[in-house]
Design a protein around this nucleic acid. Structure first.
Lengths: 235, 235
DNA sequence: ATTATGTTTATGTATATACATATTAACCTG
DNA sequence: CAGGTTAATATGTATATACATAAACATAAT
């Protein structure tokens, strides 16, 4: 017969069923759901399988689990939006556009106080400062102002950035382990409008990013996207 | 003796060690790492334990795993920033500020084409339209323009929104499954400046959000944050 | 040469079992 | 009855084992 009598119980099956019961409000927010052993017998599988399924849902924020207390449906399913922060070249080429970049400025300079704070520097040490415009099909895409802690990453001083943009150079040469992201909105100043080829006062999306490796602050970047840019994600 | 001879090998231990080797470039991006069985013997634990550890790192984007091909260190550790999208009240109260909101507009109206598209409506049906200003310590915090698919959620028509804001009402009454998020930046129009109490043309962060439940589009919101607002996260 | 076919191998998953750990609930004890 | 001790219990983890599955690789058939 053609019926796929696929009674096999995988953790996915269990997870889907639990997710369904939550979304259909069979189990309402705040409710205690049956414990693993009961669900295991109900679904005809091992407790480990149920555990895997429920753990996943707990990680996703849909369930809250505590030893002995049991598992309950989260009261406010902590909605999370996950942005993938791609290499700019890949983002542009992924849209089928031609990627390019141009370094406007490269200097050693003592950074302004806010950058000093983010990079945990003491205010006397000059570090590498770069301003780069990335283009898609020759049109301004994003303007990058980057400070690189060249004390922590001395190799960067000899980098040419001819083939590889600062963005890609760092991704390749330094193993990041974490960072901060901040989105904000600003109106383009005259300078910024000139670089991005837009009108004075246009609204722009700004992404400030600081990355570190093992407690050493590596770089602080401000990305100023072209007008109309939208940072999108699903969840 | 005082030495904690804690030789117990948990998946966390293994994960930490692997993470360390990646960040210290013992295993460089693109490298194939030993397979599970070998790591298991090296760490003196079961393969399942190694599997758990590596699976976690793969989920986090640090490793790429393929059957038969093995496990390799990701070339570009897909940096992900995860934003938690809190209920506005909690975000404001979490900062120790006084929360308030005021509904400016409540009407039934056929939404503009972009909203129609997002909500998958056919352009003839009026739905609920709300404009709400949320305040922190009586100062404008975020201006919300919300369209609710009142065909899918008829109960919303009888909601008063006196105790609960539209935001919280929906979180409580509807079990969302997913949605879209888009960040962008705009310059305040005269109207927007008036509502948010800022100057004409100031740069504002905008968050557009559409949420659905089981393929039914529920609501589409535009959040216009006050000037200087920063959406922040770590990773 | 190109296309099937099969073999090997590393990861993916399921299971029973055992013990660890956090936390509640019940029970003493002063 | 307060306060501490103990038992009960649900989740968390580790392990050995077994089999599933995808993909790379080798080999045979067209």
């Amino acid at each position: 017969m053609l019926v796929t009598d696929d009674d096999r119980k995988t953790w996915q099956t269990v997870q889907d069923e639990v997710r369904l019961r939550i979304s259909q409000r069979v189990w309402k927010p705040g409710d205690l759901i049956p414990h693993e052993a009961d669900l295991a017998t109900e679904f005809g599988c091992a407790r480990a399988t149920v555990n895997r399924a429920l753990r996943g849902l707990a990680d996703a924020g849909l369930l809250e689990r505590r030893r002995k207390a049991g598992t309950r449906v989260a009261l406010n399913p902590v909605r999370r939006a996950e942005f993938s922060i791609p290499v700019i070249r890949e983002e542009i080429e992924g849209r089928g556009q031609r990627y390019g970049y141009k370094i406007f400025l490269r200097e050693m300079r003592v950074p302004p106080p806010d950058v000093q704070a983010r990079l945990q520097l003491d205010g006397t040490q000059p570090i590498l400062h770069l301003q780069t415009l990335y283009t898609a099909d020759n049109r301004p895409y994003v303007f990058e102002t980057r400070w690189i802690n060249s004390i922590a990453v001395p190799d960067v001083l000899s980098a040419e950035f001819e083939k590889l943009s600062p963005n890609e150079w760092l991704v390749r040469e330094v193993a990041f382990d974490g960072g901060d992201f901040t989105f904000s909105g600003i109106a383009a100043t005259e300078q910024e409008a000139a670089v991005l080829g837009c009108k004075l006062g246009e609204g722009l999306l700004v992404l400030d990013r600081t990355t570190r490796q093992a407690d050493r602050m590596i770089t602080s970047v401000r990305l100023l996207f072209h007008p109309g840019y939208r940072m999108h994600t699903r969840c």
